[in-house]
């Protein structure tokens, strides 16, 4: 009995004494919580603090901040900057007590604004901040930039496969599925499968068959991977982040009960009309084979952008996650952009 107690007390002490490591060389690995409007949201900071350059990453729908922390993010970006992986309100490890707000996107954008203020408060007003959003995070980052004064606190905006216009999404998806199918048939790749996908797409109505179009999009993605047009992106590192580093129960249950995209869809949310107000240097990155957020939707958003200094990069071997499928090109473009404006 006494021995058992001693062992347990030793375990307890070990756990309680564990803390956030912070090396003196400027390399940081730190979890910082933002408390804002009833929510406590973790921001996981990893990278080189001496660079005084912070890249805030907003994850996509149903994802989590640390989902990005593998491969090139660790080996390239964290070497050069501090990457801030943020769990948004109601997602993954974010917690708190609050009622469902009337304007969820506005509240989530105000969370991101508060995070930017917190980073400047903690690491100094002289740090260079870049905001990057992927998919739903692209839309959220755009909504954040439209809040008064936010653009002045940032050096640049990186939009990766961001969905900026919900009402136009179904039509854009239907069109891109047809285009990809025609292209694959012309290249004599899985002709029968692509003919079937194309014919099904032609028969769908974007106004009423949203769910069917999404299902067809999922089939198209599987076919593209089966054809080896695009490589599979699930890695052991990603699984580690999802199952060990992050809590999969918290992640999935949070997503089940809190789906901001469903709200955006319900209110037909679109930033197309407001993008002209964004004058910040911007980098848009989209995958050629993205049937979830088509490259054409990205191009339309890019044309509406008010920024004078802007660049559009298309990834020719990617679906929705160019940072996973073409990491070298992604890292080069991102670093070139950040180093030009920081």
């Amino acid at each position: 009995m006494k021995n058992s107690l001693r062992i347990w007390i030793a375990c307890l002490a070990g756990i309680l004494l564990s803390c956030n490591p912070e090396s003196p060389s400027g390399e940081i690995h730190k979890t910082l919580y933002l408390r804002h409007a009833g929510a406590d949201m973790p921001a996981y900071l990893h990278g080189n603090a001496d660079s005084k350059t912070f890249l805030v990453v907003l994850h996509g729908a149903g994802s989590f901040g640390l989902a990005f922390r593998d491969g090139m993010f660790i080996s390239d970006l964290e070497e050069n900057y501090v990457v801030v992986y943020f769990d948004q309100r109601g997602q993954s490890m974010a917690q708190g007590h609050y009622n469902t707000p009337e304007d969820l996107i506005d509240l989530m954008a105000s969370d991101v604004e508060a995070l930017l203020k917190l980073l400047k408060h903690t690491y100094g007003e002289d740090i260079s901040l870049f905001l990057m959003g992927h998919s739903w995070g692209g839309l959220l980052s755009g909504a954040t930039l439209l809040r008064p004064g936010v653009q002045a606190s940032l050096k640049g905006w990186i939009n990766v496969s961001g969905l900026m216009d919900l009402p136009g999404a179904s039509l854009a998806r239907k069109d891109i599925i047809q285009t990809i199918a025609e292209e694959q048939i012309a290249l004599d790749i899985s002709v029968e499968a692509w003919q079937q996908i194309r014919d099904e797409a032609i028969g769908l109505n974007p106004e009423s068959d949203d769910t069917e179009i999404l299902k067809l999009a999922a089939r198209s993605m599987s076919q593209l991977i089966a054809d080896e047009t695009v490589r599979r992106t699930v890695s052991s590192e990603k699984l580690y982040r999802a199952l060990i580093d992050n809590n999969p129960v918290n992640w999935q249950v949070s997503w089940f009960f809190n789906q901001p995209v469903a709200y955006a869809k319900e209110v037909d949310y679109s930033l197309l009309g407001s993008l002209s107000q964004i004058s910040l240097p911007s980098l848009f990155m989209y995958g050629k084979y993205d049937v979830s957020v088509p490259v054409t939707a990205g191009e339309l958003a890019y044309l509406n952008l008010g920024s004078q200094e802007r660049k559009f990069v298309r990834f020719d071997a990617s679906i929705h996650h160019p940072h996973d499928t073409e990491p070298i090109k992604f890292s080069e473009e991102l670093r070139l952009f950040i180093n030009s404006y920081r």
Binding site: K30, T31, L32, Y33, L34, R35, D40, P42, K117, H121
Partner: peptide
């Protein structure tokens, strides 16, 4: 019990 936590008020005070 959370790690270092900072509250940001609606007025922007931290």
């Amino acid at each position: 019990f959370l790690h270092d936590t900072y509250a940001v008020s609606p007025a922007g005070e931290i």
